[in-house]
Design a protein around this nucleic acid. Structure first.
Lengths: 339, 339
DNA sequence: CTGAAAGCGCTTACAG
DNA sequence: CTGAAAGCGCTTACAG
C-alpha cells in the first residue's frame, strides 16, 4: 500500500493528528514541529488519501461538468473543450477533481445528476450552456443543488451564480464596428434563439442599429437551429435579394463557415460583396480564406473562473450568488471592409 | 445529511451488512430479503456513499484522462471532446468518475499525474495521444501505473493496453481509393510525424503506392508541424510544380481546410484540379465547399472502449494487456474525382 | 501546542 | 443465509 499518515507520524515522532494539522497548515502547530513533519512527508512522498480525507471532512472535492444534451454537432465547437480545460486546470491545481456529465438526452443527464449528488460523488455542477426552459436547471434548482452557469441564466437569475461574457455589449460593439466601416445594411445570423448567448448578441445588434436610427428588419435576422444546418434557404434568399445586406454579424465561427460556403456557391465574394464578423475566434477563424474578423470570448478563462467560484462556494456555502463577467475582444482580420 | 446504509437497514429490518451485500447482488442473500431491502432503498432514494464505499473497498473508481500538453490549437480538433464524451458516458453508466489532466507543458502534467496517483485520486490513466519519446508515458510505465493508450504505442508496445484504429490499413485503403479513381500522382500531407497516427497513415499510403509499382517521392510527402501551421511554403511549392499531384491524402480535416485555403489562393479548384481525401470526418468535412470525402475513425467508440478496458483492468488487475482495433469507414463526398 | 479517541459510511472476513 | 465487528485513512472536537 501507499504511504499513510501513520508512517509520516512515526517518522516525525508525532501523532497522526499533528500530521493532519500540518497538512492544512493549522496555526496551532509550532513551526518547528511543522518543519519536522514536512521533512518526513517529503522523504516518504506522502500525499493524504483523497477518499479518506473527503470522507472524514464530509466533502467530495469533486465537480460535475454538464455538457448540453444534444447531437454530435454541438461538440465540434471548441468552446466546450477550452472551457473544460480551464476548469480542469484550476481543479488540478487545487486538489479537486472534475468529471463530465454527458448523455444523449435530458433524461440521461438528469439520471446522472441525481445519482452523482445522492452518492456524494460530486459537490456541485458547472453547466456549460444556458437555454430557456431547461429541465436540467429546473432539477438542480428544485433539489437545492449547488450549480454554476457558464452563460447568462434564463431563470432563477437572482439566485444563480454565473460566469458570462457581456454578450449584449459584444453584439453591440460588433455592430458598431461594422457601422463605423460604413455599413448600414447589416444582418444578424444566429443559432437557435433559445440559446441565451445568441439571443443576447442579437439584442446587442438591435440596440446598436436603433441607436443609429436604423430600423431592425425581421428579414435581416436569421435563425439557424443546429439541427437543420443543411437548410439555409432563408439565408440564401436574403443574400440574393435586391436589398441584400453588405455585412453579416454571425453568432459563431462555425456558422460563419457555413455562410462562407453559401457565398462561394452564390458567387458572392468576401469582403468585397459582403463583410462577415463572427464570434469565438476559434482556430477556424484563421483557417478560412479570407481569415475572419472575430470576437474572442476567452473560453478558457470562463472555465477557470467557474471553477474558482465553485470551489469557494463549496468551502464556504454562505457566500452570496456572484456574477462574473469575462471580457471579450475583437480580433481584426480580413473579412470586413470599409464601404 | 443524506440517507445512509443504516437508514435503509433500519427500514428493511436487516443489518447494514445485508444492505451492502444486496447492493452488490451478493448471491448469499435470499431473494426475499433482497427484495425487501431494495424496496427500502427505493423508498428512501438511497445510493451508497461514493467516498465511503471506495475507502472501504480500497479502490477509487476514478480515471484520469490525459490530454496532450500543447498549445491551444490542438484542442480545436473535435477528436478529443468526442473521445472524452465516450469515456465519460461509459463511466457515468458504471458508477465511475473520470477527470481530465491537463497542463501547459509536460512538467505540469507529470506533477498532476504524480499527485493523483499518490493521493489515490485515480486508479489509472487514459492517454489521448501517442507520440514518440513521450516523458509522460515513460513516467507512467516506470512507476508501474495502470494506463491505457488511445493510439498505437511508440514504446513498451507489448506491455501496453491500447485502443486504436488500424491507421496503416486506413491510409492504405484511402490511397487505393484514389488509385482506383485513376490517380497516380498522389501526395501525402500530414502533421508532425512524431505523432504515431500520422506516421501510420503515411506508411499505409506508401505501402499502397509501392504495391502498385509506383515510387514514393520524398517531395510528395509533406509534414506540417502544428506549431507552424502558417508556413505552408513547401506545400505551395508542390502545388505549383509542373509535376504537381492530382490528389492529396491529408492526415486530418483541419489540415485539409488549410490545404483548401491554399488552393483557393493558388486558383486550384477542387476536385477538378486536385482531389482531397482526409481523415476524421469531423463537422468541418461537411462545412467546406466542396464537402470533403473523409475517413471516419469513430472517436466516441475509441473512448468508450478505452473506458471499458480501464474498468475491467481496475477490477481485475491480472488481465493481460489487450489491444483493441476500432473500425474506420470512408465517407464519400465531393472532394475526389475520377480522372 | 499536542495527543487520544470518536467518527465519517461503507466493506468484508469471520462466526454462527 | 445473516449479523457483529474490525478496518479503510483520514479529521476534528475535546482534554490537557
Amino acid at each position: 500500500m501507499a504511504v499513510t499518515i501513520k508512517d509520516v507520524a512515526a517518522l516525525a515522532g508525532v501523532s497522526p493528528s499533528t500530521v493532519s494539522r500540518t497538512c492544512k497548515n493549522n496555526p496551532s502547530i509550532s513551526e518547528e514541529t511543522k518543519e519536522r513533519v514536512r521533512r518526513a512527508m517529503a522523504e516518504l512522498g506522502y500525499e493524504p488519501n483523497f477518499q479518506a480525507s473527503n470522507l472524514a471532512a464530509q466533502i467530495s472535492r469533486s465537480i460535475g461538468i454538464i455538457l448540453p444534451p444534444s447531437p454530435k454537432e454541438t461538440y465540434e465547437n471548441s468552446f466546450y473543450l477550452e472551457t473544460i480545460r480551464g476548469i480542469s486546470h484550476y481543479c488540478n491545481a487545487h486538489q479537486y477533481i472534475s468529471t463530465i456529465v454527458t448523455g444523449q438526452n435530458e433524461e440521461e443527464i438528469l439520471n446522472a445528476v441525481r445519482s452523482m449528488s445522492r452518492s456524494g460523488k460530486v459537490n456541485g455542477f458547472i453547466v456549460l450552456y444556458s437555454r430557456v426552459n431547461d429541465p436540467v436547471i429546473d432539477f438542480l434548482f428544485s433539489e437545492g443543488l449547488l450549480y454554476i452557469l457558464i452563460g447568462k441564466p434564463a431563470q432563477y437569475t437572482n439566485h444563480t451564480i454565473y460566469i458570462d461574457n457581456d454578450n449584449l455589449l459584444a453584439g453591440q460593439e460588433a455592430t458598431e464596428y461594422l457601422y463605423a466601416l460604413g455599413h448600414r445594411k447589416i444582418a444578424y445570423l444566429g443559432v437557435d434563439n433559445s440559446l441565451v448567448f445568441s439571443a443576447d448578441r442579437k439584442t446587442g445588434y438591435m440596440t446598436a442599429l436603433i441607436s443609429h436610427g436604423l430600423t431592425v428588419q425581421p428579414e435581416y435576422c436569421i435563425e439557424v437551429p443546429a439541427a437543420s444546418q443543411n437548410e439555409f434557404q432563408e439565408l440564401r434568399k436574403l443574400l440574393l435579394r435586391e436589398e441584400r445586406p453588405t455585412a453579416v454579424l454571425v453568432s459563431d465561427d462555425i456558422l460563419a463557415l457555413s455562410l462562407e460556403r453559401i457565398c462561394i456557391e452564390a458567387d458572392i465574394s468576401i469582403p468585397e460583396d459582403l463583410s462577415i464578423l463572427s464570434f469565438n475566434n476559434s482556430l477556424f477563424a484563421r483557417l478560412t480564406s479570407p481569415q475572419l474578423t472575430s470576437i474572442d470570448i476567452n473560453s478558457g478563462q470562463l472555465g477557470m473562473e467557474a471553477a474558482t467560484q465553485m470551489i469557494s462556494h463549496i468551502e464556504n456555502p454562505s457566500l452570496p450568488a456572484t456574477k462574473i463577467i469575462v471580457p471579450h475582444q475583437l480580433i481584426e482580420r480580413d473579412s470586413c471592409r470599409r464601404i
